[in-house]
């Protein structure tokens, strides 16, 4: 299990690095082509924008590994450890449910787009570009479900 997780982590990290370098490379390459050779890649700009979406959502996936998302942390520091476990449990459940809903509806969206058969650029179908949305939310859902379970177990195991 932990092998699988560490492989997934490596894949995510590698994706982040290669997507960012690819974006920088594509834009700079476009500038060089234009100024040096009076030409350009027509589909580079739309591709780069899709890559920004991918980069962002994969970044959000990685942020979920450690529950490191933008949040307001005003109340929690006034709570006792015991009580905070319960509120955390509750929040993890809430996050899991919302992300699961998001996964479901974005998956439906991608299926509709697949049936539509539109092209994004070049001959890449648009649904392939959109696929990152349900995948990212799916993985975020799983991560928060695991936080929830972990917290639940902690509550029901007596402190050593």
């Amino acid at each position: 299990m932990s092998r699988v997780i560490s492989i997934l982590h490596k894949i995510e990290d590698a994706l982040l690095v290669s997507l960012l370098l690819l974006i920088i490379g594509l834009v700079v390459f476009q500038i060089v082509l234009r100024n040096g050779f009076d030409t350009g890649i027509v589909w580079a700009d739309p591709l780069v924008r899709v890559l920004v979406l991918w980069l962002g959502l994969i970044g959000a996936m990685v942020a979920s590994r450690t529950d490191n998302h933008i949040s307001i942390d005003i109340v929690s520091k006034y709570l006792t450890t015991g009580f905070k476990r319960f509120t955390d449990l509750f929040i993890y459940l809430f996050t899991t449910i919302i992300c699961a809903l998001m996964t479901q509806h974005s998956a439906r969206f991608v299926l509709m787009e697949k049936a539509d058969g539109m092209l994004a650029f070049f001959s890449v179908p648009v649904w392939l570009c959109e696929l990152v949305i349900p995948v990212a939310f799916g993985i975020i859902t799983i991560r928060y479900a695991l936080f929830f379970l972990g917290n639940l177990i902690k509550i029901f195991t007596p402190d050593p």
Binding site: L16, V17, L20, L57, G59, A60, N68, H69
Partner: peptide
């Protein structure tokens, strides 16, 4: 150290872009 820096900065971007989206 570069991959680590990219990872850390893109996690930041992910958190912000998700909110913007």
């Amino acid at each position: 150290k570069l991959p680590g820096i990219i990872r850390e900065s893109m996690v930041m971007v992910g958190g912000i872009l998700l909110i913007l989206g």
